[in-house]
């Protein structure tokens, strides 16, 4: 077990190194520091100002290692900063990035945790229900509804719901955030509902496929032959076996709760990491964007390791060696 975790972490570290290299290629060679400076300052700025900006933002070193500069170059600097979480300042407004991330995490989690839990609580029982009534009209209608729901762009969900609730029904405020937990519920209700609705179609379809695949197995036939009822078969045999494929989808998503939701946060004015990212896109803030991709990848690697470990919990055939 211990050896397995160490090996897994080792591979994770290699992947993170790969991700950082890709990021370097994208953000330092495809777009050079000069491009970044021009985007931040404008096209008609004299070269001296550009050079000064590069010094201020730590873009002033040569890109690649060369004789005499093995340590003092952007590539090494990039790895050093990212690995020590020394993210520096925003290219657009000079605010310290780590500070912004720390502040953004709370609002993001306030949105994503309830969204995540609620999605599971709604989608899994519905999918079980649809799978339970397989080959009937309930099943067929469920699948068609799921495909219909999947085919609606998330933009339409958001715009539609904002219009409906904000202009017609007036249940909730359509945008904003508050640090007071009692107030914030009113702000979060709508984005959470939209988030659940948006994911529901795809989730139900995926879970249903998994449940159906498990219900066609030989051991389910054995259970029926010994006199098990359908409800018991679903809950004890099918569900427990389905956990294995379900976990891949669920556990992997957990780390991403930290990074929030781009669309929901910026549409509903929630000052989380998603909104910070959207601001970075609109403000050509490359350093923030780079950091967000890196953090996302880091969390994904963690999620993968968690998923592998969680297999051992639900599947006795998996032994961590």
């Amino acid at each position: 077990m211990g050896a397995y975790v160490i090996r897994r972490l080792g591979y994770g570290a290699i992947v993170v190194f790969g991700v950082l290299f890709l990021l370097f290629i994208l953000f330092f060679t495809v777009t050079s520091p000069d491009d970044i400076a021009r985007k931040a300052l404008g096209e008609r700025v004299p070269p001296a100002v550009v050079e000064q900006w590069k010094i201020n933002h730590g873009y002033d070193k040569p890109l690649f290692p060369a004789p005499g500069q093995w340590a003092d170059n952007m590539l090494v600097e990039h790895y050093r900063r990212m690995l020590t979480f020394d993210f520096g300042r925003s290219d657009a407004d000079d605010t310290p990035i780590l500070e912004r991330i720390r502040k953004g995490m709370g609002p993001s989690l306030a949105l994503t945790i309830p969204l995540f839990v609620l999605s599971l609580l709604v989608a899994i029982p519905l999918a079980l229900l649809v799978a339970f009534f397989r080959e009937t009209y309930i099943d067929r209608a469920g699948v068609i509804l799921a495909v219909l729901a999947m085919s609606v762009s998330v933009l339409l969900y958001i715009i539609g719901a904002q219009y409906l609730v904000g202009k017609v029904l007036h249940w909730f405020p359509i945008s904003g955030f508050d640090s007071n937990p009692q107030v914030v519920v009113r702000f979060l209700a709508l984005p959470i509902m939209i988030g659940v609705a948006n994911g529901l179609g795809g989730d139900i379809r995926f879970y249903r496929t998994v449940f159906l695949e498990e219900s066609n197995t030989d051991y389910v036939r054995t259970a029926r032959a010994k006199g098990c009822g359908e409800v018991r078969i679903m809950s004890r045999h099918v569900f427990r076996n389905s956990l294995i494929p379900l976990l891949t989808r669920i556990v992997v998503a957990i780390p991403f709760l930290f990074t929030g939701s781009l669309l929901l946060e910026s549409f509903f004015g929630i000052p989380g990491l998603g909104a910070i990212t959207v601001d970075a896109i609109q403000g050509n803030d490359f350093s923030v964007l780079r950091t967000m991709v890196y953090i996302g990848s880091l969390l994904f690697v963690v999620g993968q390791i968690l998923t592998d470990l969680s297999y051992a919990l639900v599947d006795p055939r998996v032994r961590l060696e």
């Binding site: 992947v15 890709l22 994208l26 777009t31 896109i281 996302g296 994904f300 993968q304």
Partner: peptide, 18 residues
């Protein structure tokens, strides 16, 4: 694995921006 580790939408945005 490396590409799959980078969050899809963010990588997409980063690529288009650069």
């Amino acid at each position: 694995t490396t590409l799959a580790s980078m969050p899809g939408l963010l990588l997409l945005i980063a690529l288009i921006m650069v």
